[in-house]
Design a protein around this nucleic acid. Structure first.
Lengths: 219, 219
DNA sequence: ACGGATTGTAAAGGTTCCCTAACGTCCGGT
DNA sequence: ACCGGACGTTAGGGAACCTTTACAATCCGT
């Protein structure tokens, strides 16, 4: 079915997953991949063998994308994040809807659509959650975890990593709470368990310890 | 993999095919489906059994879509044609590219994207080739085959049926020759084998007998 | 140092969707 | 009346991708 040069959705999905695990600074091991893709560990084991024999990854001393695997992953991630931008900015979908939709579009968009969408959107550098779009001229800002901000300090939301998209409902909550890249707020309290209370756009929101340690902010 | 209520791409593909065969006034038989979908006859035979057991078609006295099958087909065709409009009008893709792309998008677009795209495009009633978009308020114009126009008579292109998308390169040719819905022209000659010569936008184009018998025009 | 959790793998199997080869049926023209 | 073609189906098989069950290896806290 896939034409010459194209790649199976499954290959794309696995390479993308490996790419994002690395991006999120999570150990790139089969067990993590199985969790993110919601498949059994044997399925991942088998697929790793296939990906290796296809030259998309190497497995000596940890799973790593080859040049070809990295290219494929970046293409998929780029399309995913461009699609998310399009779906939120132009079609006005919510974060959550856009994310799910983009998860399908990424395997289906052609190169010309990718280019046309990039043009239409004015070559954006990040997805709606602030994650960089591969191939764009994104400049990594000075950012630190929200959890490292002191009580009373101001901050600007910089980036909500892919990782948090796996907690059901969290994205919706963050979007509704105006916790979106570019917004600024203040930390008003820190609970001993790491939960932060923030003041953003006039209202107060509690953010759990895990999410706080992952969300990146700048001063 | 498909969530509850969703349908497998294969089911969608077959129902869409049946829908379009009917629309093109072609006998809805397995052999035609096999041709259009480029699969073997046994593959179609097997799938017909599956579609019937899923309640999407009936086969007593010819293949016919059930209510559910018709709904599914219309949804898919609607998404295909909306996508084509979007891809040509907004992203400036060529007919051919848009058609191929839409063939993948149709299985991937969610209901909210369908709605948002419809809004963005101003509820179009036809695809770029003039085929009606199911669910729109398309009004069938008085149209007759291009082949029935007399020499010297003027006409306006109304519709290029799906059928012609299966002749490789024909769509590209028609688009480049300005043979697009809404354009008007004149028949300047008819060859005995049915080939027409048209004058459109200042230049002359020959159109074969088969294409002429399928392309619809109004006066 | 040990026992429980985490991780990877092997074995066997299932579904979906497709293929080729081969057969039987039916229909229209000579 | 017969024969070639078109059509549908049976039989057998295969690739992709997933599952559950079970078993080794490895890591880690007390």
């Amino acid at each position: 079915m896939p034409a010459a040069g194209e790649h199976h959705p499954a290959f794309e999905e696995y390479c993308e997953c490996i790419f994002e695990l690395k991006e999120d600074d999570v150990d790139v091991i089969q067990a993590r991949i199985a969790e993110r893709l919601q498949v059994s560990r044997p399925a991942v084991s088998e697929m790793m063998r296939r990906l290796e024999s296809e030259g998309l990854i190497t497995t000596d001393g940890g799973i790593r994308l080859t040049r070809a695997g990295q290219d494929l992953a970046e293409r998929v991630v780029r399309r995913h994040r461009l699609a998310e931008r399009f779906l939120t900015d132009v079609l006005q979908l919510s974060w959550a809807e856009a994310h799910h939709e983009a998860g399908r579009w990424e395997h289906v968009m052609s190169e010309s659509v990718e280019a046309a969408m990039d043009r239409l959107l004015g070559s954006p550098t990040t997805c709606p959650h602030g994650n960089p779009i591969p191939g764009s001229d994104y400049i990594e800002p000075d950012a630190s975890p929200l959890s490292s901000v002191d009580v009373g300090a101001k901050f600007v939301i910089s980036r909500i990593p892919e990782e948090l998209e796996f907690t059901p409902g969290l994205l919706e909550f963050l979007e509704e709470s105006a916790l979106v890249p570019g917004t600024n707020g203040t930390v008003t309290a820190i609970s001993p368990d790491g939960t932060l209370t923030l003041e953003i756009g006039g209202h107060h929101v509690g953010v759990g310890a895990f999410a706080s340690s992952r969300i990146l902010v700048s001063a």
